[in-house]
């Protein structure tokens, strides 16, 4: 119940600090999954589709670049560039989500064979520790991507309505930071799931 208004600059700093502390809690949350992966898989990993993994990683990386461009644009008052770039971010984020669902959750969703020339996922959550950790990590990350997509949609809407200005665009900044954070998590999840250790037959 503040009786006096907080200056915009001060409010931004507080929001920024709160947001970073939130990221810190998320780091520990994802960290616990990371620990589970190394404790349960050790020096092994299940066979995952390498092409799909690399493409998905790049899709997310490019979306992060687009998000950076969108944020920089709105911070400097370029609304057109903001709109174009944030749309690209949204589409790429959706593609990433779709790729995870098809190429890693494929078996759970009842898919078979190949989609666009790449074999769909063949692991189920019940497949011992390999299936469990895979679904836990990708699921937690995908949920954050989904939340990010909603966040991006709202940011786009607000930006187009004119709520975000050169002086006051913390909403866009928060959205960008969140999206980069989602990318940051994937930076560590990608090698943990796809690259580290030697492949074992999970069945």
């Amino acid at each position: 119940m503040s009786s006096h208004a907080i200056p915009l600059k001060e409010a931004t700093i507080r929001n920024r600090q709160g947001l970073w502390l939130f990221f810190l809690t998320e780091v520990f949350l994802f960290g616990s999954f990371f620990v589970l992966r190394f404790s349960l898989w050790g020096d092994t990993r299940p066979e995952l589709e390498q092409t799909a993994g690399l493409i998905a990683t790049f899709v997310l990386l490019v979306s992060s670049l687009a998000m950076n461009r969108a944020e920089v644009a709105i911070a400097h008052g370029d609304k057109t560039k903001f709109r174009n770039n944030i749309l690209v971010t949204f589409v790429l984020g959706a593609i990433f989500l779709g790729m995870i669902l098809v190429y890693e959750w494929g078996a759970l969703l009842g898919l078979h064979g190949e989609v666009l020339g790449i074999p769909v996922g063949h692991i189920l959550p019940g497949d011992g520790v390999y299936g469990s950790v895979l679904y836990l990590m990708t699921g937690a990350h995908a949920l954050h991507v989904l939340g990010g997509l909603v966040f991006i949609a709202i940011t786009l809407f607000k930006g187009m309505r004119g709520d975000l200005t050169v002086k006051d665009h913390f909403f866009a900044e928060a959205c960008a930071l969140y999206w980069h954070f989602v990318d940051l998590v994937w930076v560590f999840f990608y090698p943990a799931l796809y690259l580290i250790g030697h492949v074992v037959d999970i069945h």
């Binding site: 950076n68 930071l177 980069h180 930076v187 560590f188 090698p191 690259l195 580290i196 250790g197 030697h198």
Partner: peptide
Amino acid sequence: GLVGSSTIVMMLVGIAKAALIINYFM
């Protein structure tokens, strides 16, 4: 390209990427 190599190398590359993202993007 380093697929299958040691965990520590992978983590070092990951930390380098993370540093770039945290410093320049975030």
